[in-house]
Amino acid sequence: MRRFAFTCRIEFCLLVRNFFGFFFGLIFPLMMLILFGSIFGNESIAPGSDLRMMDLSIPGYSVMVMGVAGLMSFPLTMAECKEKKIYKRFDATPVGKKHMILAQITVNLLLAAAGILILWLAGKILYQVQIRGSLLLAGAAGLLSMTSMFSMGFFFTAVGKGAKISHLLCYLSYFLMLFLSGATVPDLLFPESVQKIAGLLPMTYAVDLMQGIFAGDGLGMHKKELLVLGGLTIVFTAAGALLYRKKDWA
């Protein structure tokens, strides 16, 4: 355990130095919150509704943070380590590459958790945002959404020999989902054709689930989202593991 904690500490230092994950996971969502909050305020989403803009924006930004960690920071690190054969060197130690990969996942999960916590604290202080649903359910929904992002990122690292294809898939999927899933821009503003495309994106389901649970919905109201996110997690993890079994790490 001490060994793993130390590896996580080193991976955390590397994460901070790599700037991308650190900035887009912790600082950028906060900037979005303040920027959009100052432009659009925190009005009711519809006349008579007690739900306000920020009640929907913060769960959306939270999914954005999950995407940064699961679809960008973790898979880009893993793809680089795979391409440069850094894992090969760790395979020639008593701990092996699994230890390093697990530490990279842990650190990125913690990054996402910290990013979400900062967002909610800022939302509470600046816009009096409240979690209407159960905290436990919110945590479970967050964990499932996060797992699905990480499993997708893991699958992308397994595709292709080098890191180029993995990078392309990560950037493409992240930015496409960032703008079309409703994480940053409410999907109700999109034309119907774009909404249809959004319906094909995994992040859309994570945003819907998070927004619903935080607004006080029960899990029963989000069976479709749970099924899609759970199914995608299983499929992407299994497909990634299958591709890695055939890979030559040496």
Binding site: R2, R3, F6, T7, I10, C13, L14, R17, N18, E80, C81, K84, K85, I86, K88, R89, A92, T93, P94, V95
Partner: peptide, 25 residues
């Protein structure tokens, strides 16, 4: 072992790499 070609994470410091390996044994 010393492998024929070895790369480490570019931004890890020599000291950190040593401490990391120290924890493996």
């Amino acid at each position: 072992v010393q492998l024929q070609e070895t790369e480490y994470p570019a931004k890890i410091r020599v000291e950190e790499l040593c401490r990391l390996f120290e924890h493996f044994y």
